[in-house]
Amino acid sequence: MYYDLIIEVIDLIKIYEQESEPYHQDPYLFGQWLNEYYQKKGHPTIPEPEWDGKVNGRSADSVINTSLVHLYKYARLHAKAAIANTSFSTPDEFIYLISLVSFGSMSKTALIRLNIHEKSAGMQIVNRLISNGLVEQAALDSDKRNRMIHITAKGTQLLNESMQNIRIASMKVTEPLSHQEKMDLIRLLTKLENFHEEKTRGQL
């Protein structure tokens, strides 16, 4: 038997137990941690991918930024196809409605900030939704100047009628990925989003 290997694995589990959050006894998470642990020790566990321009010095940061921009454009194309022949003018409009359904009524400022828009662009989207009767605004009793936005029955109906096409569009963007790859990507994207949200807080 591989006694030395078993002893080494037990020692690694002890380190993992000290560094990980409680109750993270998932073998897959341990495997991820193990990869990161050996990488920190200077032992690459997964070969680096190849990309265009790598031999000429193109950085990983450049590739990631370009891919994110391209994927955003592909996602917009699928989203536009999903809302064809509906009352939505742009994908941002149904995203705003989904935000209101998911998080409840909120101020214009909060809704715009949630969707990472500059104030002027966000106000245009909100005003279109109001003029089309998809959302409405109401002043708070405690502060008449602060208006809350909430989705209307008409907005809910339109969103429900469009959701199947929207789901299909979302699936097309991630179509080639396995379930586990999607989970890995969510972890990485969440890490990036949380970092930038903290850095840009108060700027939007």
Rank of each mutant, 00 (worst) to 15 (best):
A84M: 11
N85R: 01
E48C: 11
R76Q: 09
T45I: 12
Q25R: 02
A75V: 05
H78T: 07
Y37H: 01
Y72L: 11
T66W: 08
Q39A: 11
N56A: 14
A81C: 06
P47M: 10
E48Y: 14
I64A: 09
Y28L: 03
Y38D: 03
G42Y: 04
D52Y: 08
E21D: 06
T86W: 04
R76E: 09
E36F: 08
Q25N: 03
N65P: 09
A75F: 10
A60W: 15
A82E: 02
P47S: 05
P22I: 11
Y74T: 05
E36I: 07
G53N: 08
N35M: 15
Q18G: 10
W33P: 13
Y72H: 14
K73Q: 07
V69S: 06
I46E: 05
Q25L: 10
T66L: 11
G42I: 00
W51P: 07
H78Y: 02
K14T: 15
L29H: 15
E36W: 07
L34E: 01
A81E: 11
E50S: 13
N85F: 06
P27L: 09
G31H: 05
D52M: 13
S67T: 14
Y28K: 03
A79V: 02
P49W: 12
K14G: 13
Y16G: 04
I13T: 02
D61S: 10
Y23N: 13
I15K: 04
S62G: 14
K40Y: 03
Y37I: 04
S62D: 15
S67E: 08
L71Q: 07
E50I: 07
T66H: 06
K54H: 12
W33M: 10
D52C: 10
V63F: 00
Q39C: 01
K73D: 03
K14D: 15
H24G: 00
I15H: 01
Q32L: 10
N85K: 07
I15S: 02
I15G: 02
Y16C: 01
V69Q: 11
S20M: 12
Y72A: 01
E36C: 04
H24N: 06
L29C: 09
I83L: 00
V55F: 05
